[in-house]
């Protein structure tokens, strides 16, 4: 059910092509130390479908709420953000397994969801979005009239 309800907007391969293109543009536009602008990444996204709608969790550790942007265009829900490294200039980096940069995920929501009533919450580095089912899509009992 859930996989039918969610599709990445646009072919995925195309996304990576675009990503490379953006990387190249940023590399050209910014000076050599524009490290945070290099490379994008896709944070882990979890989705679950409940009776009342769809709940999405995106892991964005280290990203402040003001660096996140959730928008809806038609039926496409987009989550964009940027994770920047907070290092002071005189510190030496020994090991880094963490990824930084800009990220963007888009999902096309089916008609059965009410895109006008999306709720977003950010807590402990996890962004939680709730998309309720539209009223028309909720199951309802049909009363049988006795004759």
């Amino acid at each position: 059910m859930l996989y039918d309800a969610l599709t990445e907007a646009g072919p995925f391969e195309r996304f990576w092509d675009l990503r490379r293109e953006f990387d190249r543009l940023f590399d050209e536009a910014l000076p050599a130390n524009g490290r945070s602008a290099r490379g994008t990444f896709a944070p882990a996204l979890e989705a679950e479908e409940g009776d009342d709608g769809l709940t999405l969790h995106m892991e964005v550790p280290g990203v402040a709420p003001d660096k996140l942007n959730v928008s809806i265009d038609g039926r496409v829900l987009s989550i964009e953000g940027e994770r920047s490294a907070q290092r002071n200039d005189n510190s030496k980096l020994h090991r880094s397994e963490r990824v930084f940069g800009k990220f963007s995920r888009s999902l096309r929501l089916p008609e059965t969801y009410d895109t006008d009533a999306v709720e977003a919450k950010h807590q402990n580095g996890v962004l939680t979005l709730h998309v309720p089912k539209s009223v028309a899509a909720k199951p309802r009992a049909v009363r049988i009239e006795a004759q």
């Binding site: 550790p61 030496k92 980096l93 963490r98 402990n124 580095g125």
Partner: peptide, 22 residues
């Protein structure tokens, strides 16, 4: 979880991604 280790004159800093942990 992924970690990052850095060092300055005064200390060693370790940062570990633990999304969802308060």
């Amino acid at each position: 979880p992924p970690a990052e280790i850095s060092e300055d004159d005064k200390a060693i800093q370790i940062a570990v991604d633990m999304p969802g942990v308060g």
